[in-house]
Design a protein around this nucleic acid. Structure first.
Lengths: 192, 192
DNA sequence: GGTGTTTCTTGAACTAGATTAAGTTTTCTT
DNA sequence: AAGAAAACTTAATCTAGTTCAAGAAACACC
């Protein structure tokens, strides 16, 4: 049930079987059906989610009523809206399953106790968040310096299986352009 | 010398005078003249910088040779390139002073020892990084959903003093458009 | 298998912002 | 104070990507 998460933690900090036994009662497990939401905008985000299997996305609904995909989360990634989680504010984002997904749930209300009993998890999350900060810098570089078409190719080269895994309108949205434009790009290179 | 940093830490975690005395020998202090660099792309980033006074920016040089400003860092902010810092890789970014600036320097090579002696700093940085992750989500929302002109107004409303503090071509770059376009926007509303 | 819904594709018309070019103003250096 | 460099402004032309519209294809449900 939680072995993927425990293995992930052990990659970064000392984490014994006893530690795992200690942590387990604080964790939840949830199966999320395709299209089902873990977080809906306007509601307070109450947990941090670790993807055990499957794929999630964070998106928002624009003033025009269209969906803007902000990020994807696949296996071994944590996903949450920290602004909402930490400040108990209604979230501006949605977290939704793109395919049937299984997540490990760390509720905000037990997080402090978890850190008290397993202080090395402070370090685990700090290290992961540093990786996330590094990725955010590259994401901005990507968005600011590449054309829409170059972004598609760059992404496709980097994550070749992704294009088949997620609907194309979501991918287009994530990459910052319209599905119509994505069709045009793909037609140009024979649907790679 | 380090009182601003110590006060900042004490906002988030228990931090006594004894803790401050313990940390101090591991810190450096640097005055950076306007336009001087703390990090140059192609070099490995060796430290995390806390802005005591002044203003920094992270930027990159595009393939066309133009500068793309990615972020600003003002008082009480930490600034670094985590990808380079943590993995000892040459950085793709530059960190430069926009005005005369004073920073507290936490070198990567002493960081582990600092965490060993002051474990609450693991928590301090985790909390700050969570805020940073929250801000990154909002930054993407901002970039994806607002027009160039709306981004200018939104930013100006939020940080009214900033527009006078940084050169306009840097602000335009940060907001994702050309300086020419920024001139047009400002002419429209009578140079606010 | 049939029907309804969602996703993808195509093409014409449109537009937000970029590019090019150059003049003006401000700042910096000596 | 003078000259050079950097930053800002202005306007015409251009373009990457959007919008609009609708048909085709794929998927979901009963």
């Amino acid at each position: 049930m939680y072995t993927a998460l425990f293995a992930h933690i052990a990659q970064y900090v000392p984490f014994s079987d006893a530690d795992a036994t200690l942590l387990q009662p604080y964790l939840g497990h949830q199966t999320v059906a395709r299209k089902e939401h873990l977080l809906t905008e306007g509601h307070v985000c109450t947990a941090n989610y670790f993807v055990r299997q499957g794929c999630l996305r964070t998106y928002l609904v624009t003033e025009k009523g269209t969906e803007q995909t902000i990020q994807f989360g696949i296996e071994n990634w944590w996903l949450t809206d920290y602004a909402s989680l930490d400040n108990h504010l209604p979230s501006q984002f949605n977290i939704q399953a793109i395919e049937n997904t299984e997540v490990v749930v760390l509720e905000q209300r037990v997080q402090e106790e978890v850190f008290r009993q397993l202080p090395q998890l402070e370090r685990y999350f700090r290290v992961l968040l540093q990786k996330s900060a590094a990725a955010a810098l590259f994401r901005l570089k990507f968005l600011y310096t590449l054309s829409g078409e170059a972004r598609y190719h760059h992404f496709n080269d980097r994550f070749p299986g992704f294009v088949q895994r997620v609907p194309q309108y979501m991918l287009a949205s994530y990459l910052g352009f319209t599905p119509e434009f994505l069709s045009k790009i793909r037609a140009k290179v024979g649907h790679r």
